[in-house]
């Protein structure tokens, strides 16, 4: 996102099981892109934002917290 000629970056917090990752993203980034960035196959997880299900076509921005749940509980 470019505001006042500056490229703004943001941080998205990702929770997966007991693991918490902070990922630096350009503002307004597609969920699919973030998952791939941290090595997660979007096909093997579902994603929540603020407790609500979202799809990998949704976008997140600075300060958002997302929770990633593996599709298979035994994996």
């Amino acid at each position: 996102m470019v505001i006042d000629g500056l490229k703004r970056e943001g941080v998205v917090i990702i929770k997966m099981r007991n693991d918490i990752k902070k990922v630096t993203v350009n503002n307004k980034t597609k969920v699919e892109k973030i998952l791939l960035k941290i090595g997660i196959n979007p096909e093997s997880v579902i994603v929540f934002k603020n407790g609500k299900l979202i799809t990998e076509d949704d976008y997140v921005e600075n300060g958002d917290e997302i929770e990633v749940l593996p599709v298979s509980s035994s994996g």
């Binding site: 979007p42 609500k52 299900l53 979202i54 799809t55 990998e56 076509d57 949704d58 997140v60 921005e61």
Partner: peptide, 25 residues
């Protein structure tokens, strides 16, 4: 405020899953 992805079938409600092989949210 970021816009939410809407359902490709009803075009009204918020999508909860992307069915990749069908190209549908």
């Amino acid at each position: 405020m970021i816009e939410m992805v809407l359902c490709d079938l009803c075009k009204k409600r918020k999508a909860v899953i992307k069915i990749r092989y069908a190209g549908l949210n």
